Simulated assay, not measured.
Amino acid sequence: MLGTYVEELGALGETPDGMYRFMYDEAWQQARDALLRWIDDAGLEGRVDAVGNVFGRLPGSGDGVVLTGSHVDTVPSGGKYDGALGVVGGLAALAALRAQHGTPVRTLEVVALCEEESSRFPANFFGTRGMLGLIAPDEPDRLRDREGVLLADAMRQAGLDPAAVASAERHDLRAFLELHIEQGRVLADEGVDVGLVEVIPGIAWETVTVRGRQDHAGATPMDLRRDALQAAAQMAREITTAVEQEGRPAVVTTGRWTVEPGQPSIVPGLARFSVDLRHPDLGVRDRLLDTVHRICATVAERHGVEVEIVRDKDEEPATMDADLLDVLRGSAEECGASWRRMPSGAGHDSQLMASRVPTAMVFVPSVEGRSHTPAEYTSPADCVRGASVLATALHHLAW
């Protein structure tokens, strides 16, 4: 069943260049509808909340809800396991628990959260923020995607009412467990079955804009140029070197670039690049950000250009719940799975959920550590093992 879920969900939004499934687009709506069918087939109660989160509910006899799940939106040219495994693994776990144990004491729900990746709208963790009551009232009428589509209009196209966003807020959650692929190679390299995530890193996204002078590529001597791209490239190289010298687990990526006017015969007058800086220690992350800013200012002066830095995202590290980690550890041992404690290198819905709800994550290996690529793959055996550990933990928490 789990393998079928992975493959069928992975076909929705799949292209020769990888997965493209963005919040509220056609592929996302197809995924929502497929999940609702599978939820019904599993004997669970399905529903979609005001922001588009999809739920499958196994009602319990007592108060409170234990929630599990992840997200189904993807990065551009992504893979079929990131996020999706946590959703279909949670669904398979609830279906098995219902069949084997009947009615739980505490209600169980599986959720497919929306817009974890910010691939379409600058609305990171939109689904989780909706559940926690953290969406600003003006967001649907303010945020637009790269094509200029208003978030509110996209919601209406998906059958949702942007005026009802506040109704997605929840106050009945007692715990959240997220099954996820590691997206790195620690488990694969060490031959460990599952990872128990202790901390999710603090993440800062910044956009660096460098303004030089646009000139003729043939008639402007090298020593008289104010080439925005060369200055930006020097900044990126020195930033990378500084973070490399800091060592693990510090990481930085300069993955998005814009060059204007972008012609072979013109010295670039503008270059813009992104900085994604991560570290599980907020103090270290912020110290490295200071280094980034100092490097940019120094290089700009050296090249005679102007530089502007804008903060796009600022997420603090999140520590997972110790008691839930103990439940996951015991569940892994019950399932005969080897385990290790570890930090997450990536950001997840769990980091925001942990600010309000006891939260923990369990990782399964990614082959060769690949993720955010069509080459992303986790073996069927590892998928099933992760879902089994999750189901065992949910049984302990709900019965």
Rank of each mutant, 00 (worst) to 15 (best):
P317N: 10
V87D: 05
P249Q: 06
L67R: 08
Q351F: 13
L390K: 13
E7D: 12
V243W: 10
A31G: 08
D40M: 03
A92N: 08
L97D: 06
A166Q: 03
P221Y: 05
H216K: 02
V48P: 09
G130R: 04
R146F: 06
L390C: 13
P280T: 05
E368I: 05
T103A: 11
R120P: 09
A318R: 08
R237T: 15
E178Y: 12
S388I: 09
A112E: 02
G262V: 03
T128L: 10
M361Y: 11
G102H: 04
P76I: 01
L134M: 12
A381I: 01
L160T: 02
I203N: 13
Q183W: 09
A337I: 05
N124L: 14
S265W: 01
S331W: 07
L196H: 13
D223H: 08
S70A: 10
E376T: 03
E109H: 05
D138T: 08
V389F: 08
S331N: 09
D382A: 15
T128P: 10
P137D: 04
A99Y: 00
T220N: 03
T207C: 14
A27L: 02
T128K: 11
G10F: 02
G46D: 01
P59H: 02
V389E: 11
Q29W: 00
I309D: 07
Q157F: 10
T74V: 05
G218S: 01
Q234H: 15
L94P: 07
E182L: 12
E117Q: 11
V367R: 12
S350H: 06
L196P: 13
T392L: 11
D349N: 15
L229E: 05
L177D: 10
A332L: 07
G18E: 04
L328K: 13
H396I: 09
L173P: 14
G127D: 09
Q30L: 06
V194M: 12
A50K: 02
D215W: 01
G191L: 00
R142W: 09
G43N: 02
M235C: 11
M23C: 15
G83L: 04
A391M: 13
A231V: 04
P343T: 14
H372C: 11
V310G: 11
T254G: 14
G69I: 01
E333L: 14
A92R: 10
W339P: 11
G83A: 02
V110P: 05
